[in-house]
């Protein structure tokens, strides 16, 4: 079968100790059996390692930070599209998704660029601050949580929570606080980095298990692979993990994706308590950085996303390999100063 040639722009090239999903998504697309993919990297910082991975990223462009607003992003994408004729864009950062969702219909009507993103309503519904309601609506247990806006509110948390509890940032970061003093400390630390509000969540003990999944937006879960972290970095990121055989977890994932009619990739983070109950801790609205494990297990989720973005009807994956491990590694790329200069000065590489 001759592969269709397409150009896909991908962000999240920060393949660092807390990696973005860009490079794993690109690896998955490069291994597609349907497409021959030219990859355009979209970067926010000049030291994102993916910028310099020439065997994976064919050309890169810097794009404005989400705080610059959608107008400047659209202008930049217009220019990139003129240069590269993009077919699909896969944004991979939580913080940029709002802008891309907002621009998705315009990208399609003006430039014929496809995306495959959740609706704004879906995106907001799984936000950490309203996850408890999301759990009620989708029949999945979620630890009780509430938003706080000042450190002064921590004193009164004892009326609703018992310690330890979890202090979480709006987009990233979470720390377990055993005392109010620790909670105040984490409040300041996390809010300084990610802003307000801070989410306070009931602590549930057990094993963390995560699922990478993809929905077609019509209530079908196209693929799902559960994983348990085997090696966790000091930032709480998986450095190694193994795919699991867990029917209940797949059932819950199908229910969440089905009920919410989720469109696009996502990661569901659960705690499995000692009693065998599953608690949804977070639903991330994009592929996780370990999504390449799904490819290794026989489910190419990024490829499925691109096929659906291009209007293809696809049948859901029905199986995956259990007991496959991913083990990350780091290595030093040697980069010519000229390359760093190019991306730093003209914003292209």
């Amino acid at each position: 079968m001759e592969k269709r040639k397409i150009t896909v722009a991908v962000s999240g090239l920060n393949n660092i100790d807390s990696p973005g999903p860009g490079i794993p998504v690109i690896r998955a697309l490069k291994e597609s059996s349907f497409f021959e993919v030219r990859i355009i990297g979209l970067s926010y910082e000049n030291l994102e390692p993916g910028l310099y991975m020439r065997e994976l990223v064919d050309k890169s462009y810097s794009i404005p930070l989400p705080s610059s607003g959608t107008a400047s992003l659209l202008e930049r994408l217009r220019y990139i599209h003129e240069m590269e004729s993009l077919d699909v864009i896969i944004p991979n950062f939580d913080a940029e998704l709002h802008s891309f969702i907002k621009l998705s219909s315009q990208l399609k009507s003006e430039f014929e660029i496809e995306t495959f993103l959740p609706t704004q309503e879906q995106f907001e519904s799984r936000h950490k601050s309203v996850l408890y309601n999301f759990g009620v609506e989708n029949e999945v247990k979620v630890p009780f949580s509430k938003m706080i806006f000042t450190a002064n509110e921590i004193g009164s948390l004892k009326n609703e929570f018992t310690y330890p509890l979890v202090i979480k940032g709006k987009y990233y970061d979470a720390s377990i606080a055993a005392t109010p003093e620790q909670a105040i400390n984490y409040f300041h630390k996390i809010s300084a980095k990610w802003g307000l509000p801070i989410i306070v969540q009931e602590f549930v003990s057990g094993n963390e298990v995560n699922v990478t999944a993809i929905g077609d937006g019509k209530g079908n879960c196209i693929g799902a692979v559960p994983m348990r972290k085997l090696y966790i970095t000091d930032k709480g990121k998986a450095w190694a993990g193994v795919s699991l055989d867990d029917e209940n977890l797949i059932k819950i994932t199908n229910r969440v994706i089905g009920n919410s009619k989720w469109k696009g990739g996502c990661e569901l983070e659960f705690i499995k308590s000692k009693e065998g109950e599953y608690y949804l801790l977070e639903m991330n609205p994009r592929f996780p950085a370990w999504v390449y494990l799904a490819v290794g297990c026989g489910q190419n989720h990024p490829e499925a996303l691109v096929r659906m973005a291009l209007g293809e009807e696809i049948t859901p994956y029905e199986s995956y390999d259990v007991g496959k491990l991913f083990i990350r590694f780091s290595f030093d790329q040697i980069v010519d100063l000229k390359d760093f200069e190019k991306i730093s000065t003209i914003g292209e590489l």
Binding site: N207, R228, V242, L244, D245
Partner: peptide, 18 residues
């Protein structure tokens, strides 16, 4: 029943990854 055991004595529990 679903645990995997190899000849070398390596045991893998696929339901929790241990």
């Amino acid at each position: 029943k679903n645990i995997a055991i190899s000849e070398s004595g390596f045991i893998f529990n696929p339901s929790n990854g241990d």
